[in-house]
Simulated scan of single mutants.
Amino acid sequence: MNGPGSTSQESSILARAGHGLRAAFRFTLDVALPPLCPSCREPLGDGAGLCAACWSKLSLIEPPYCARLGIPFVYDPGPGLLSMEAIANPPAYQRARAAVRYDEVAKTLVHGFKYSDRLDLAPMMGRWMARAGRELLSGADGLVPVPLHWRRLWGRRFNQSAALAGVISDIAGVPVLHGALRRLRATRQQVGLSQAQRAENVQGAFRIDAQGKAAVAGRRLVLVDVLVFARVVAAAKSTI
């Protein structure tokens, strides 16, 4: 016959055994499948993120840049100066920031994240986005991930923008407003389109319903999109 404490003691032993088995399994996986650089697929050893060679090729966007669009300047023209693009075609939002230039390394990361189920890239990319958009995030009331059409969501398995918004939320302490923005129709890929074609492509594709309006009215919002690797991280005062 078992004593009164036998059940809890056995559960504790089983829990410790299960933890030990999981640890052994993770160790076996690490030995059999060492972490690889997400860009070139070379082993990282004990590291994480990108290998040294790919990191050296990545171009983080740093000041000086256009105060409105975040487009890098060749030289520092002084604080608050706008680029010719921002002056000629003022955007509907107040500010936009990008984490990196769209080079070969960034392109590989974006394609892996969007089309190859590389959800494991979200923490790294989200950290870069939070760093690039820190001045926007400091005064933000909410993060709005760009929604996918249900057919595209089915194909990609998860909303990459929402995954990035979750990482940024954890870092910046800004809540994610899921469902605030709804997609009404599927659109063409924006890559390769001109600015005018991009605007026409998404015309009427999104809507904020009554419930969404209540969540965003009068608030400072940061729109999070994976388009061209963190290219759109834009803050705007809601006018709804």
Rank of each mutant, 00 (worst) to 15 (best):
F27K: 05
A98G: 12
A186E: 15
A15K: 08
V191P: 03
P77I: 10
A130G: 11
D141G: 14
G18W: 03
R151N: 12
L81A: 09
H111S: 07
Q190P: 05
L29S: 09
L81C: 08
R183W: 06
V146D: 06
E10Y: 14
S11G: 00
A132Y: 08
S194T: 09
A53E: 12
G218F: 05
L109S: 08
L143F: 01
L14C: 01
L181M: 13
L153N: 11
P147I: 08
P77L: 03
R182N: 13
F113K: 10
Y102I: 00
W128F: 14
R134W: 04
A130R: 07
E62P: 00
G142C: 04
D209S: 05
A17F: 13
G179R: 13
W128C: 04
P64F: 04
A205C: 05
N89Y: 07
E104A: 10
R22F: 02
N201W: 09
D117R: 15
L60Q: 14
A15Y: 06
S138D: 08
E135W: 02
S11F: 08
R152T: 14
N159K: 03
P38Q: 05
E104I: 01
V176F: 13
P72C: 06
G20Q: 14
W150G: 04
L69H: 08
A210T: 15
Q190L: 11
K107Q: 05
R97V: 04
V232A: 00
E135Q: 10
Q211R: 13
V222Y: 05
L136D: 12
R231P: 00
T187H: 05
H19T: 13
N89H: 07
G133F: 00
L21D: 06
M124E: 00
A98T: 11
R16W: 06
E42R: 14
S238F: 00
L14T: 02
R131N: 06
